[in-house]
Design a protein around this nucleic acid. Structure first.
Lengths: 251, 251
DNA sequence: TCTTGAATTATGACTAGACAAATGCAAGCT
DNA sequence: AGCTTGCATTTGTCTAGTCATAATTCAAGA
């Protein structure tokens, strides 16, 4: 009988956070097989119900997937919650039945300057991949995107090919994230923006700022301009356990 | 020993959905005490672990709150997920340190016309409360709102006083919801809108369409216009178990 | 009256089993 | 080779308890 005294934190919480760590740090990448319940029983010297509780929780949150006889596997970074699907502009365009193309306007690897550091919310310099490109649907500009990727968090991005999949789609498919933030607002477009989107000067645009983290480390910061009137965001949801806090601000 | 054969659906799922029904239909209003675990054990003729699993799940999703010795209670409709806090414009304005006021432009109870029915997504006529008003922050227009409340779902709204709390705030505090949908877009405001918000003609606005349901029944449909540049929406979230599906559309 | 402290009660955590259901795999058959 | 079938593995669900912990209630004492 395992001693249970002196455990300040409950056992299942400890097991849970250890497994989460394995997944979040990338030590257990998507598709990796999590040890079966009997192994975890042995590892943590506890009963099956305890590890089952943990794995069931993680599965209900989508972090892992479980299949009888097969086992438990780390989920692929999921196309997720609420407003999150939107950043995959390529998938959205294809879903509309249009053809997708990417026009890269600029693309460089550089040391982060103060403005980059502010966008990523970090204090120290690092290498970043900075890009600006236009999403093209059926030969017409669909959205303009300005993106920064933190290469110290996502070194794989250095070798990624963004001609078939745009950076947002590539990141969704390859990098698991633990936190995200969206800022949405409307602007009267300035000539630089409207010009790239083939819009009349002063046309309204929907601007989506998106930032993601993995653990505490920044993954990417992106700003996307969508032409107004031709585009809107939809989100459906249940009250659920969303721990995220939402608020709005005046600039 | 309870028979477990012939149960096509698992026991804890059945218990769970029954309790959810009690809450969602309003039979167990916010603050209502859920039977203690031993009572539920007797009701469903099962072990404590089974009802505990159900109640723990519901608690983790925020539907109920549990306190040792006190018991389990239905949660107050929570100021919830992702972008949901935004609709409480009054709270947002007060949080900014400004004074709040409501200017009611129109307010009537009527049989729903075809346009109302489309907004609420229903096929049959019913009584609705239709309002248009401006949220005022420090004597200046902050947002314009057009709202429809389905009085067959929320008969209490008939007697509600919207001079201190605007309808959105009142609903958040009084009516639990099970589903919501947001549509967000930017528009170049037409003169009617910009006039009411003291904006130059053609100024960009952020438009938020919000609709909520309880069970399958519509609660309310609201459209809010926010001046661009002075306002943005922020949402932070984790990948979590958000069952909601999100997508975007072209109009 | 106010405070302290103990009894009570409900949840929280966990165990050590049980049987059911699904499914991947391999052995055997065609 | 391709197909079927049975078996072993793994998760899914559930039981009937134990001990721990928090918090409310209530009564005794200052």
């Amino acid at each position: 009988m395992p001693a249970k005294s002196a455990t300040v934190i409950s056992l299942h919480k400890r097991i849970r956070s250890e497994i989460e760590q394995h997944i979040l740090t990338g030590e257990w990448p998507p598709g990796h097989k999590v040890p079966v319940e009997h192994e975890l029983m042995a590892t943590y010297d506890c009963s099956r119900m305890t590890v089952n509780k943990v794995l069931t929780e993680l599965a209900s949150e989508g972090l892992v997937q479980r299949r009888r006889r097969a086992g438990t596997f780390v989920s692929k970074p999921r196309p997720p919650a609420t407003l999150l699907q939107i950043p995959d502009v390529k998938a959205e365009i294809l879903a509309l039945g249009a053809s997708y193309a990417l026009r890269m306007l600029s693309n460089q690897i550089r040391q982060s300057d103060p403005s980059d550091m502010r966008r990523l919310g970090v204090m120290t310099a690092r290498e970043v991949l900075a890009m600006r490109y236009v999403h093209i649907a059926d030969s017409a500009p669909f959205a303009l995107e300005d993106r920064l990727i933190d290469l110290s968090t996502v070194p794989e991005a250095r070798a990624a090919d963004f001609t078939s999949d745009p950076p947002g789609t590539w990141l969704l498919a390859h990098v698991p994230w633990s936190d995200a933030e969206h800022r949405i607002r409307a602007i009267n477009g300035d000539p630089e923006i409207t010009g790239l989107l083939d819009l009349p000067a002063n046309a309204a645009c929907l601007v989506l700022d998106r930032q993601t983290w993995r653990g505490g480390a920044p993954i990417t910061a992106a700003r996307t301009w969508f032409p107004a009137e031709s585009f809107h965001l939809v989100a459906r949801f249940q009250p659920g356990s969303n721990a995220g806090k939402a608020h709005n601000n005046q600039a």
